[in-house]
Amino acid sequence: MSNTKIRRLTIARAMAEAIQQEMQSDPRVFVMGEDIGALGGVFGNTRGLLEEFGRERIRDTPISETAFIGAGVGAAQDGMRPVVELMFVDFFGVCFDAIYNNMAKNNYFSGGNVKVPMVLMTSTGGGYSDAGQHSQCLYATFAHLPGMKVVSPSNAYDAKGMMIAAIRDDSPVVFMYHKGLQGMGWLGTEAAATVDTPEQPYQVELGKAKIVREGSDVTIVGLAMGVHNALKAADKLAEEGVNAEVVDLRSLVPLDRETVISSVKKTGRLIVVDEDYQSYGVSGEVITSVVEHDYSLLRSGPKRVAYPDVPIPFARHMEQFCLPNADKIVAAFHAM
């Protein structure tokens, strides 16, 4: 790896490079979805691929999510490795049967004889006043249903390695990328998601969380945009002399409960940040992981900073009022 070239990439470019490299080395890999060809994906994650691979393998689809996600399942079962894009996760309502009844269950219902090596990539997140049919995260909706891995990177390095790992995985993987981290300026991007990324292909193991900041006083757990809010909160807490540890979950399925538990063993305090709806979601699951393991690890009640259980409003001040942010995380710590 000594001669590996390192560049700063956005998540969008890191995803595109991962797909490109897998397509170069594996003829079974192809992409289909809406506007993934000439446009290069609404969120930039297939940019440049049409020019290199052509229309057969970079396949624009009609607006027919049921048909083309179902087709992804059929192609994966027949030996291909499709990367299929559901443009906004909010659109899952028109095509969920293909996802949770076919993609996620056919391995099980065939006793492991039918593999579905498919990546379903989809955008999540708001913060740019697109209202509640184009801004949701819905992490827990997917993670709740067995049979599909569910991952969401917070930076370009992880995005590339996790996309390569997802394409090579024999299980279906839902790859959720946050619009606010894509490096698309028109979405008001988070600069810290654009990081050094090696040119050589590499994998980031799915199902492994990462401690992205070490600390001893409180564990702040998040994923995707939540990680960046947690890191900003940790900076603020540091000014008060509080040493926060930040855990990037990276994967929701499999969920790396061990890393969270180990961190809380050290800190005794737990805050979970989640841009998905609060109830019945990621925050409850992470807290339960710790409490079920050993409730005495906690020196105070756990806290969550999540999206309130309301449809996401349009007006900027209303949406921002609802979204998790660093100040809310700091306030949650102070309330412990």
Binding site: D78, M80, N101
Partner: peptide, 19 residues
């Protein structure tokens, strides 16, 4: 689930065509 084998059938057919 009613009609939900149709998309996978298209995908399997696409797989044969592409390969």
């Amino acid at each position: 689930i009613i009609a939900q084998g149709m998309g996978p059938a298209c995908g399997a057919a696409l797989s044969r065509k592409m390969q």
